[in-house]
């Protein structure tokens, strides 16, 4: 990975596709770390925060959200062409996000449920943005952790691969010595969900819902089998897997 940092500050742009806007704000909310970062980067495109927004070329682009219409897919391709590095920011951009729940029904039927007349831009299925363009780095989470966004920008500036936990939420949960939900007979997505949140939900007395998407090489089938043994129906299992990362290949074929 080549180093981005040159004599000049690196040009950074933040784009939004179909999303809630929460992940881009996490960057701003990184506080001190974010302000320090501004010594090394110039944020040149960030419409939620700035009125003067420049066209590319950029050094680093963060894309929040999934591309869910013909217009957004085209926009995404243009963004890719204008930048050296492209980062998928958040579970929407990495795996399609919650709106990928709808991928299993005809979109026209769903549009009909919400709108009397079809809206101007017609939504399509929701996938991670790497379905359409090359992605250089992924920051997972719904929302992302502020420290992880700062980390990814720093790594790209230094030309090193950003490092994120290779283990699951389950590992972090054990380290925090929480009582295991699965052992209590309560479905939990911890074993197959990417760690890095420090097992936030299980530590707050709630099972993991999988908001960070699949961990590396998840054993989805084994977890599904365990859920069935705990008495879950096929529909229950499907609902668990088809949530934040319904479009993910790692979850394909579970609970169909």
């Amino acid at each position: 990975m080549a180093q981005v940092k040159m004599k000049e500050k690196a040009k950074v742009a933040i784009f939004k596709l179909s999303s809630c806007g929460g992940c881009q704000l996490q960057l701003v909310d990184a506080g001190e770390d974010f302000l320090k970062l501004l010594d090394h980067i110039d944020i040149v495109y960030f419409p939620i925060a700035k009125s003067e927004n420049l066209d590319g070329p950029y050094d680093i682009v963060l894309v929040e959200g999934s591309a869910c219409s013909a217009e957004e897919i085209e926009h995404l391709r243009k963004i890719r062409a204008s930048t050296k590095y492209l980062v998928a920011l958040g579970t929407c951009a990495c795996f399609g996000g919650l709106q990928s729940i709808r991928n299993f029904e005809p979109t026209a039927k769903l549009v009909d449920m919400v709108y009397e007349k079809p809206p101007k831009s017609h939504p399509t299925k929701s996938f991670g943005i790497d379905e359409y363009v090359k992605v250089d780095a992924y920051v997972v989470g719904c929302p992302v952790e502020p420290s992880e966004v700062v980390e990814v920008i720093k790594s790209l500036l230094m030309g090193v691969k950003p490092r994120f936990p290779p283990y699951s939420v389950c590992v972090e949960c054990k380290l925090r010595e929480n009582e295991c939900f699965l052992l209590k007979g309560i479905p939990c997505m911890g074993p197959i969900t990417a760690g890095g949140c420090n097992a936030l939900c299980p530590s707050s007395n709630r099972p993991c819902e999988g908001c960070r998407g699949p961990t590396k090489d998840p054993n989805s089938k084994a977890l599904a089998k365990l859920l069935f043994e705990l008495g879950a129906t096929n529909e229950d299992v499907r609902r668990k897997f088809r949530k934040y990362a319904a479009a993910s290949m790692a979850f394909a074929g579970v609970g169909v």
């Binding site: 179909s18 869910c68 217009e71 709106q99 729940i101 709808r102 769903l110 449920m113 919400v114 831009s121």
Partner: peptide, 21 residues
């Protein structure tokens, strides 16, 4: 904005995950 169709895909979800979605 492209519609994300929350009201459509909330249908079929369980009562205890509605607020989370």
């Amino acid at each position: 904005e492209t519609p994300r169709l929350f009201e459509a895909f909330l249908v079929g979800r369980k009562y205890d995950e509605v607020h989370e979605i």
